[in-house]
Amino acid sequence: MPDNGEARPFRPKLRAGARFGADAAQRPILLFEDVYKSYRPGAPVLRGMNLVIERGEFVFFTGASGAGKSTLLRLLYRAETVDEGRILFMGRDVARLTPDSVPFLRRNIGCVFQDFKLAGAWSVYENVAITLEVLGLPQRLIRARASEALDRVGLSGRGSDPAAVLSGGEQQRVAIARAIVGEPALLLADEPTGNLDPQLAIDILGLFEEINESGTTVLFATHDRSLLELRSRRIVVLDNGKAVDVRSGIAPETIESDFDNELPV
């Protein structure tokens, strides 16, 4: 409560974590325990994967095509469920959420994809504002926060443009604005630079780093070696269905051997 008697601006609690006890803030934001996932019998994508992600981390996920990067992210926002094991997000087992709870999980996770996943017929503003409309916030607040998010990704003044007419880089910025406007605890990026030229890719990576600096945990799946070499970040390599954690960067030769030369050089 404000002690000076002045009214605070309305700020909804969007983070589910805010409802948890004080100890919740001390727990890792993500915990993978013996996670198994397969699409075909006898060919598991993830086989007993274990991993801990702390709050506020920026983690690159990398690995050869089919190594399970996208699967891992899909498991996180419950587009898929694990066959065995547990994924704890803020202490809650994602796989055990009821279907009715899944939307509430997703309100705490921002997602950015290689193919942007925008509604092309909607305007830029509408694509961003929908995240807040789902929460039932007042239009006044939605307008203010959507504009703020668009400003943050460098698209201020472009709100009325149809999303379909934007360039690839601009569309990805809209997708990022949509992902961050709800101030999610976790931001998932599945090959977000896959369709962009190298300079744009670096710009977009910089945007994710800025978002991370404000406290949001970022999981960035990519097989773009140049991006991995560009920054000294924690890198998790997915190989043979398990996560190999490299906390302080990775040497190029290690990457080559790990990926069996499948990475673009």
């Binding site: 926002y77 009715d100 939307p103 509430f104 999980l105 997703r106 309100r107 997602c111 996943k117 925008l118 509604a119 694509n127 929908i130 995240t131 789902v134 929460l135 949509r178 709800g182």
Partner: peptide, 8 residues
């Protein structure tokens, strides 16, 4: 898009 952003 609606599903992604947590629409019921």
């Amino acid at each position: 898009v609606l599903r992604l952003v947590g629409a019921t």
